[in-house]
Design a protein around this nucleic acid. Sequence first.
DNA 1: CGCGAGCTTGAACATTATCAAGGCAAGTGG
DNA 2: CCACTTGCCTTGATAATGTTCAAGCTCGCG
Lengths: 240, 240
Amino acid sequence: MAGCEHCALGGGHALCVQRVPLFSTLSGEELAHVASLIRHDHFEKGEALYREGDLLDSLLIIHHGSAKAVRLTPDGREQILYLFSTGDFLGERNLFGGHAATCTVEALEAVQVCAFTREAFRTLLYAYPGISVKVIEELETRIARLEDAMQTIGVRSVDGRVGALLLGFAQKYGSATPEGTLIHLPLSREGLANYLGIARETVSRKLGQLEAEGAIRAVGSRGILLLNPAALAEAAGASS
Amino acid sequence: MAGCEHCALGGGHALCVQRVPLFSTLSGEELAHVASLIRHDHFEKGEALYREGDLLDSLLIIHHGSAKAVRLTPDGREQILYLFSTGDFLGERNLFGGHAATCTVEALEAVQVCAFTREAFRTLLYAYPGISVKVIEELETRIARLEDAMQTIGVRSVDGRVGALLLGFAQKYGSATPEGTLIHLPLSREGLANYLGIARETVSRKLGQLEAEGAIRAVGSRGILLLNPAALAEAAGASS
DNA sequence: CGCGAGCTTGAACATTATCAAGGCAAGTGG
DNA sequence: CCACTTGCCTTGATAATGTTCAAGCTCGCG
């Protein structure tokens, strides 16, 4: 059986399928079956996992690395819609309706993915009905994330957006230190700008301002130390 | 059997369940079974179908009328996330995870809904597995809408947002006339502002500007005649 | 006819984008 | 090992854009 090589490698390495909430209801034996259906792929930084308009025929699970889902706006800029990292899955949008991909997904760093073909996944759905419910739940989660993002982008002042973004990143990419939470940003300033829908320069200025206020401290170009989360939360909550 | 009274009323009136894509794969007999599980409810304009934080236990199908899904932002304004009208269904977010509702849904006019209890719907899912796939597809559609909305709100200039909104409304609420498409707005100016994430006054100004340019013509307070859709499309596509 | 809610308009103000110049850092080649 | 180059980031000045506050208007309704 063509198992998941990545998963087989490295000592206490868990099966990649175990990392996906989708399969959390399955037994070890079933997981092994699922894993046997997996094939692999690898992308370098900057490479596209797929592009807007592609007709995907696989479900992708990010085994290691991170990626951004972007969409080109009519005026030529790009809007980042999601950030994916280890354990997230994508491509589910295209498995059923036969729709073309609605956004381009590009690797932010080297990315290893585990993939199911459409057929393999459909087989799974019939074999393990519980997965359907999991898919639905996962989609609901993604909707919730989008709703949050939309509320953030749509209404809050720019200060608030920046604050909310940093707090969000702190949970996802942060690690606790004696001084506060250290965030390793997954994006450049330009990336942050595209995520927030504002100009690059504005990101710089807002971060500079927050640093001047003592709420954060820059650590290299991709590191931010959260000194005063409460100040950010306040910015995120108040209109100015 | 406690059938769907609304559906039974009025001559060639279709079963309300037929209006929902969810059940499009079912036969007439199966539809009748589904319809037998339905109960009803009615809401007046301004009344809430449910509120943020409620633990819903039903799937609601809008049989007649329209409603808005809103979320209160930290700074006290409201952000409109969706508009629902006849045939749309809602509450699916809360059927599985047992999550509380993430937004408040309020009737924009008198609304009649058909509802399934959670149990009834689960029963259906097991009886007719095809419904699961439909649910997934429908969720995907909703995600696509959100992604569109996010791109619109996040990046486009306000002129572009207004243009895109009008074009979108033209498809959903428009009727063709010799002079152009006549849109009956489902929202007040304040509603439009909350939907677009901008100030009331700005909506007035932009609409006035479009009217001055001859792209649209106001017809009463809730009517807009689209004279030059191309001009709107251009605004929606260009940054300024 | 008069009242009130919602809409429009104006002017001052705040914020952000844009344009432009300069700095920092990492990687390159001598 | 150092100067150079390149890409990315910061900072400043200016102009465009939207918000806010305030006043007046319109339309529908009692």
